[in-house]
Design a binder for these strands. Structure first.
Lengths: 343, 343
DNA sequence: CTGTTAGCGCATTCAA
DNA sequence: TTGAATGCGCTAACAG
């Protein structure tokens, strides 16, 4: 075996026409007689025939690859989502191309353009939308081009683009968390609110505030600290809280890894979690499940989101953007055991 | 703008031939007069021309995508590696397709075949080799086909396939870990050795044993327990150790997540780590850095491995398989503080 | 049900 | 340096 057998070779060996060989192997609308099909398949096997995807793509206008754009593959939320996408893709005989923006949200449009050039069949766009309007415009323009070319697009985040979207109910989750923490007796809260321009972070803050308000607790502006969305951001924000607002009894970090940093910061200030201060996160990262104390958090099943996104992007649907909401569930751990009466 | 402008359209608008347009845009051997080139480029911009990758691939025989095959994208080691690959790929203008075998090592060959059909430019095969010989044969056969077609392949693991390989020095790392633990005064070891057929796990065990032997410590067979390579495997193996060999003072889990499970198992048996038993892992997963106790482990910079792999797979090299060794570094944490004299 | 034929968009040969 | 013509491998009309 050297270069590659082509469909033409297969047809010749099988003694049929090119078209018949194509139909037998690919299975088009037309059917092929059992005997001929058998002959073709046998010839293909003998010749170790491999279809040339590029040629097929040229005809069809798209390939069997779905592109996945995400902010950071190392983040367990997104690697979980990628895992779900890949698993579902395998079931459908699709390949998955992944592009990481590494949190440079402006890169999303570039990667959409890249997938368009590749003639990928569909794109899944994961990760929170931001408040950056000009960027969103460029992204939407690229998406429109991709769709004009016959590609399908699904976003997993907020409903901010004119595409099918799986919306994660950050608000609802944060609201329930707030209520639960209030029930546990906490009253003086601080929120490590993450980046100002990240909608997921904003939604979690907003939901949390709403939940507290429902319990008659107001969240003072001074008790909201912005920072990066990662472990170090949580550390710094918590340090600031401890410096400036020493009297809080519960801290909500809008992301598990920020919560991790917050706990580390508390420790390095000589405070124990949860004895001196309670901490809750958001995301329920698997690798943190064995942490001690077990972090109170809000579970998002990102693998499931990935699977749903792939299914959605494959289901035709021509009648305007669809929205599917996915809830999340509060998990109480030992990091918020309930407040003992103070003093 | 509707369907898509083709190179033909660009040529027409620019008032040149197809060939000239192709040469101006792609930049072939032939050069194009400055003025004509400018005209072509302008026309391309006006028409929002996007090259059809499929057509180009048909001519060239390969595209600008590199395939990455790994056992599990959710494992931080592999998501880190993927991150490195993607980062380097971006610098080279390449896309990355990722396939997860979900630890079904027989799937590797299937995905190599898949990437071959896609006419991908290169494949990076990450993850430990196993002792399964027939599987390895099938995989090698698919790799040979891929290479016969002009593709390049690099493996990151053990040097078991006839391809360029980046070898992770598991043995050396485990050996140094053993020596270090011995220096800390530990004498009675158990090893949670992971799956019997996984070479990485075997190498870590072997290195650890060698290291102990160098310190005059023999590792009894009964103190080696096999299990799955994940958190739950570590939990079960540790439970078995505690049941059957209560007297160990230090446990080495060949993988960080197994160590995590081991610590959880110890706790649920009423034992404190490290007070009652010390635990060490392997891998230095980032998300575990804030764990308490801080896990003693062996650091592998998987992001770097990914970057190196991509560079290697792009560098031509026709003279038989190359091997590059990458070391790893022992990190001591509070999970192995040093042994207090017993009794 | 099967065969013939005409491109898909591009890079590259061969002429000019 | 430029242009005209060819064919990569395949699918989908269009005949039969």
């Amino acid at each position: 075996m050297e270069g590659n057998a082509t469909l033409f070779d297969v047809a010749r060996v099988a003694g049929v026409s090119l078209a018949t060989a194509s139909r037998a192997i690919n299975g088009s609308t037309r059917t092929v007689g059992a005997e001929l099909r058998e002959r073709v398949l046998r010839a293909a096997r003998e010749l170790d025939y491999v279809p040339n995807v590029a040629a097929r793509t040229m005809k069809r206008g798209h390939d069997d690859v779905v592109g996945l754009i995400l902010p950071d593959i190392v983040d367990p939320y997104f690697s979980g989502l990628a895992s779900g996408v890949m698993r579902a893709a395998e079931e459908h005989g699709l390949m998955v191309s992944i592009a990481s923006t590494r949190r440079r949200s402006g890169k999303e449009a570039d990667y959409v353009a890249g997938f368009r050039r590749q003639r990928n069949r569909a794109i899944i766009l994961a990760g929170s939308r931001t408040t950056n309007q000009p960027e969103a415009g460029l992204l939407q323009a690229e998406i429109d081009r991709f769709e004009a070319q016959g590609g399908r697009v699904v976003a997993v985040s907020q409903r901010k683009l004119a595409v099918d979207t799986i919306v994660v109910e950050n608000r609802q989750g944060a609201r329930e968390l707030a209520t639960g923490l209030s029930d546990l007796g906490y009253r003086d809260f601080a929120v490590l609110a993450g980046p100002r321009d990240l909608l997921s972070a904003r939604d979690r803050l907003a939901g949390f505030r709403t939940g507290l308000a429902g319990c008659g607790i107001e969240l003072a502006k001074e008790n909201i600290v912005n920072s990066e969305f990662d472990r170090d951001g949580g550390y710094e924000a918590m340090a600031q809280v401890l410096r400036e607002r020493g009297d809080v009894d519960c801290v909500f970090a809008v992301n598990d890894f920020m919560a991790l940093g917050a706990i580390a910061a508390a420790r390095s200030h000589g405070l124990d979690v949860p004895r001196h201060v309670a901490v809750a996160g958001f995301g329920d990262s698997l690798s943190l499940r064995d942490m001690s104390p077990r972090l109170t958090t809000v579970r998002i099943d990102s693998e499931r989101l990935g699977r749903l996104a792939l299914e959605m992007v494959l289901s035709a649907g021509g009648e305007g953007p669809r929205t599917r909401r996915e809830g999340c569930q509060v998990i109480f751990g030992t990091s918020t055991p309930g407040r003992r009466r103070k003093r």
